[in-house]
Design a protein around this nucleic acid. Structure first.
Length: 507
RNA sequence: GCCCCCAUCGUCUAGGGGACUAGGACGUAGCCCUUUCAAGGCUAAGACCAGAGUUCGAAUCUCUGUGGGGGCACCA
């Protein structure tokens, strides 16, 4: 294991030699999920660590699977996470365009350059014929692959047919002998027999390139030094290296990341798993997480640690991640998604926020709930609920009562544990009298006389304070009682106690 | 079926031939703190996939098997 060590020297050399430029290259074919976010994060981390650039390139060459709005979601999600690219279709840059459909001509020229160099060839085989060949191969229990019909076509003739308007694709002329060895930073050298490789299509008949060629050309033209991508590309790794070599270009440092598995660890997330997660208040889509009350710091920390082994103290800010990041401490093995850990990191990062910052972030939740929020009050409430929040929207459950005109306690909840309605009424009445007699209801003023009452009454603290809590907050669980009383204010406190007495008397 | 990758507590991981009685984190359980819920502190249970080999010595190196994952498109 840890073949990474073996190629460490390789990495260090590459870091010293050329400027580090990394990229994240998603297709706008669906939602922006955890896996993409983590790939983006690691790219970002490397770039920031060594002062390089991190770019976003949109791989939109599959017009059949194109999803409108997907590119916006990618850009918005990255921005929300705080890892926006230095160069992108939206931000521009010196190596654009950054959207592959806008680079059509570049691919066309390069594909024909490869034909000139005899590393590729135009192919006129129809999809029907190809499918027939595939079926025959399957019937003979052979591996389906291109049968080479057009590979041996006369160069000039092929070129003429193509120029004359006949439909064609350009295929890579994969060497028929030998093997291809390439180095993955985390896994060491990987060798594949060339006979296992196919004459893959580089340029489709619609004139657009396939990923294999487009990505290699763009990585070269955009001077990408390190390719950090998902391990789904490991199987096409050898093809990519062959394409690069056919052009005569230098290889980047390759890093293939692990994949994310469903929480059980058995298999990838399916549509169904995604739906289940949603029902539990979780999602694998970054944009959803935002809506579920997660904060970017928590999400980032969470995904960073799935596939990256950090020794200790693993609650980290983005800056701390940059500081500690090291590309060879990434792990090659698949990682199961653990949403409980997301909650943990989210809560931990919420606790790290300043009062002003947290207040600013939870305010919209109160507003959306139709509550009127005074900033003064919010600033006092925030420290009381900070360590209780797992997600931002929890603020409603803990603190909405501060901003309501009145509360509506459940009558049964007003009856303290072990007591009956009469006794609870007595507690509410006495509490009213005590609190009404005080000059103000600050924590310091209100608590001592109430404690004294507990002593004398013979009721337990939990019984007295329980009645009070439910009467004043309308809920059984709340922030600390006396701090809350101080914020609610004398007028409302007395009103709410009065109302509680009325409710109890009717029982 | 063929090719490739991966394999340490339930989960994320540390580990680089002796420092391993295998460390940390999440989760779980218990205790402490406590007016509720949290947060915090302490404690506990919990793992080297299997079998061969190399070696004085293997979680660590090699092979085989098993399990998991990815790929075998004019998808990315």
């Amino acid at each position: 294991m840890r073949a990474g060590r073996r190629v460490e020297v390789f990495l260090e050399e590459s870091l010293n030699q050329k400027p580090v430029r990394v990229r994240m290259a998603p297709s706008p074919t669906g939602r922006f999920h955890l896996g993409s976010a983590r790939t983006a994060l690691y790219n970002y981390l490397l770039a920031r660590k060594v002062g390089g650039q991190y770019i976003l390139r949109i791989e939109d060459t599959d017009q059949k699977r194109f999803v409108p709005g997907a590119e916006e979601e990618i850009i918005n999600s990255l921005e929300w996470l705080g890892i926006s690219p230095d160069e992108s279709p939206a931000h521009g840059g010196d190596y654009g365009p950054y959207r592959q459909t806008e680079r059509r001509e570049i691919y066309h020229q390069h594909a024909w350059e490869l034909v000139e160099k005899d590393h590729a060839f135009p192919c006129f085989c129809t999809p029907d014929r190809l499918e027939k060949v595939r079926q025959e191969q399957l019937a003979r229990k052979e591996n389906p692959r291109y049968d080479g019909t057009c590979r041996i076509l006369d160069h000039d003739e092929a070129r003429h047919r193509a120029m004359a308007g006949e439909k064609y694709v350009i295929r890579f002329k994969m060497p028929r002998e030998g093997s291809t060895t390439a180095v993955d930073l985390l896994r060491g050298p990987i060798t594949i027999e060339n006979t296992a490789l196919d004459d893959s299509v580089l340029l489709k008949s619609d004139g657009l390139p396939t990923y294999h060629m487009a990505a290699m050309i763009d990585d070269h033209l955009m001077k990408i030094s390190h390719v950090i991508r998902g391990s789904e590309w490991l199987s096409t790794f050898a093809l990519h290296v062959n394409i690069l070599r056919a052009f005569g270009w230098e290889e980047p440092v390759w890093v293939h990341l692990s994949v994310f598995l469903k929480p059980s660890g058995k298999g990838k997330m399916s549509k169904r798993d995604t739906a289940t997660a949603m029902k539990d208040g979780y999602s694998i889509f970054v944009d959803d997480l935002k809506g579920l009350g997660y904060i970017p710091e928590g999400v980032l920390n969470w995904i960073a640690l799935m596939g990256w082994g950090v020794a200790e103290d693993d609650v980290m800010t983005l800056d701390q991640m940059v500081e500690r990041f090291s590309i060879d401490s990434l792990t090659p093995s698949p990682a199961a998604i653990n949403f409980q850990k997301l909650d943990h990191f989210n809560g931990a990062h919420i606790r790290l926020l300043t009062t002003e910052d947290l207040a600013r972030r939870i305010k919209p939740y109160f507003i959306d709930a139709g509550l009127e929020v005074e900033d003064d009050t919010l600033l006092k409430v925030t420290p009381l609920i900070r360590e209780r929040l797992v997600t931002l929207d929890d603020c409603l459950a803990f603190a909405a009562f501060f901003f309501k005109e009145s509360v509506a306690p459940n009558p049964e909840d007003l009856v303290a544990k072990g007591l009956d309605a009469r006794q609870s009424t007595e507690i509410a009445r006495r509490s009213y009298d005590i609190l009404a007699s005080l000059p103000d209801l600050s924590h310091e003023t209100a608590e001592p006389p109430m404690r004294e009452y507990v002593e004398k009454s013979g009721f337990s603290a939990s019984q007295v304070f329980g009645v009070l809590r439910v009467a004043l907050t309308g809920q059984k669980v709340s922030p600390p009682l006396f701090e809350s009383i101080g914020i609610i204010g004398k007028e409302k406190v007395l009103e709410r106690l009065q109302k509680a007495v009325e409710i109890l008397e009717k029982m």
